[in-house]
Design a protein around this nucleic acid. Structure first.
Length: 497
RNA sequence: GGCGCUAUGGUGCAACGGUUAGCACGCGGCCCUUUCAAGGCUGAAAUACGGGUUCGAUUCCCGUUAGCGCUACCA
């Protein structure tokens, strides 16, 4: 049987840009809350502003959400498909007297110069003229006669909410506590534009009522406008839900995170090789904490521990280095199986994936990934510095050659080593270890000299996992071949010098 | 300008009247070591300022300052 108290929340982006970090965090909180409470998450696209709305961006937003692993239960629902519902709500408010038609010109309140303020003593270096708050619209008290005349004239009108001149409006915020504002502070705001399109204030309330939203979790930038929405709820005969305004995410300069702070779309983090779970963990801690010092929390734990009571009221600065740290943690700590699909995708992207690794050679693949991952920071590392683990098509890093191939005894010793390795009956860490150290002893050189040179020969880099395990993973034939292949390069590097 | 919110190291969080103010990132040092990471140990680093309330304030109240938000026929 349906539980009448099932929490219902929503994430309601407007397609005026890509899914950015702030939106992603809001979506995450809604999702964590829904999962924790056994509730429903609805995705709603707020696209009533035809001017700024870019329909083609919706796909990108959904894609970003999917990458983040945030699955919605209902929707996406487009507000642009529901215009009649908002209009009829506005008509109802008009009929009940809670709203009134406004015949002012649309520009009169649009931050323009409708009311050339007589009190402009300001320096006027910025915007300037409108320093007084918008007074109540004069149409509010239009006499019935005059209103009738306007109507006859067929003048276009907007519908404004008739805000009480006195008293207070209050509501409950799960994060900021009980709120109360003076009605006198609020202007007669527009509900329905003169072109018949609803404003955010109207559509958001009508939808939230219609969708039976129980908790509105959204950015704190909406806190100041919430009283207006509460008024609409009550005028519509509905009880407002519980609000939970979450603090904003700022850039390093403490201004609201925006494009000029660099990468702010979640898609760019996907492209950079971040793991979605790492991103989620990082985002979750921006404005929320479980109440203790826990930081590394896998998603199931985030869901388990998430509560609105742990949401902070202070804005948080997006700290990229910490995000990267989380990524290394998620690259290194979880069971290697969790990582395999991501590495597979990365290798496919780099065109060096082989299907056998997903089948008969899966154990080998897992082992290789496990060996490589302690040194990775991004998924791209698997196809970059660790490329030689997956393909013979790799080159030698110039610095690595310079650093570890300069001893002129190397070609001779490594030639011998290759021969010795080729005859090894067993191929594993210990056998390689014994062969290399044995040769070093016989030649009277430090094992490190050979170890470092071999590493460059078989993986092309100075930086790689411990050598003998690397040799074991790469395999006997390939190791021998790679050492022999490298010999000329060492010699030429020598003779040319 | 008006209204509101916020204020713990550089950053993210903890301490929700009594702690030598804790953890993590980042930064420095040491250990480990086969390169580079990881890991372990360790160092520097904070309660914005001023008044109250209280036996006792990071914590409660007021003011100041600063930052942010809202103040659109944008969301």
């Amino acid at each position: 049987m349906p539980n009448l108290t099932t929490p219902r929340v929503r994430f309601a982006p407007s397609p005026t840009g890509y899914l950015h970090v702030g939106g992603a965090r809001t979506a995450l909180f809604n999702w964590l809350f829904a999962r924790h409470e056994g509730g429903i998450l609805i995705l709603r696209i707020e696209d009533t502003d035809a001017e700024r709305n870019r329909p083609e961006l919706v796909g990108g937003i959904l894609e970003g959400l999917r990458w983040l692993g945030i699955a919605w239960d209902e929707g996406p629902i487009f507000q642009s498909d529901r215009l009649p519902m908002y209009r009829s709500a506005a008509e109802r408010l008009l009929a009940s007297g809670a709203a009134f038609p406004c015949y002012c010109k649309a520009t009169a309140y649009a931050g323009g110069d409708a009311a050339p303020s007589e009190t402009d003593e300001g320096e006027g270096d910025d915007e300037g003229p409108n320093s007084q708050r918008a007074a109540a619209c004069p149409c509010r008290d239009l006499s019935p006669g005059l209103r009738e005349i306007r109507k006859q004239e067929g003048m276009a009108y907007a519908i404004r909410f008739r805000v009480a001149r006195e008293g207070v409006t209050n509501f409950e915020d799960a994060v900021f506590g009980p709120r109360e504002v003076q009605n006198a502070e609020i202007e007669d705001f527009v509900l329905l534009r003169s072109n018949g399109v609803p404003t955010y204030q109207l559509s958001v309330v009508v939808d939230d009522i219609d969708m039976r939203i129980t908790h509105i979790i959204r950015g704190a930038d909406h806190l100041s406008n919430t009283p207006k929405q509460v008024m609409i709820y009550r005028a519509l005969g509905a009880e407002p839900p519980i609000f939970a305004h979450v603090p904003l995410i700022l850039g390093p300069d403490r201004t609201r995170l925006s494009k000029r702070h660099g990468a702010t779309s979640v898609g760019s983090y996907a492209d950079e090789g971040f793991l979605p779970e790492a991103f989620r963990n990082f985002l979750a801690l921006l404005g929320w904490s479980p109440g203790d010092d826990s930081e590394f929390m896998r998603t199931h734990e985030l869901i388990e521990r998430f509560a609105l009571s742990g949401v902070s009221r202070t804005n948080a600065v997006f700290d990229r280095p910490k995000l990267e740290w989380f990524n290394t943690q998620y690259l290194q700590k979880p069971p290697v199986e969790d990582l395999l699909p991501y590495v597979e995708a990365e290798l496919k992207r780099a065109s060096i994936w082989q299907d056998a690794w997903g089948g008969p050679e899966k154990a080998w693949f897992a082992h290789a990934v496990d060996l490589i991952r302690p040194r990775t920071r991004f998924l791209g590392d698997f196809s970059a510095w660790a490329r030689a683990f997956f393909t013979d098509d790799f080159d030698y890093d110039a610095e690595a050659r310079e650093k570890f191939w300069k001893d002129d005894r190397l070609p001779g010793m490594l030639a011998k080593l290759a021969d010795a390795l080729a005859t090894l009956p067993e191929w594993n860490h210990d056998a390689c270890d014994a062969a290399v150290r044995g040769l070093a002893a016989a030649e009277g050189v430090k094992a490190g000299l050979l170890i470092n040179a071999i590493r460059v020969a078989i993986v092309g880099r100075a930086v790689a996992p411990p050598l003998f395990e690397t040799m074991a993973v790469i395999g006997k034939d390939r190791v021998v071949a790679r050492i022999r292949r490298a010999l000329p390069s060492m010699t030429s590097a020598k003779t040319s010098a």
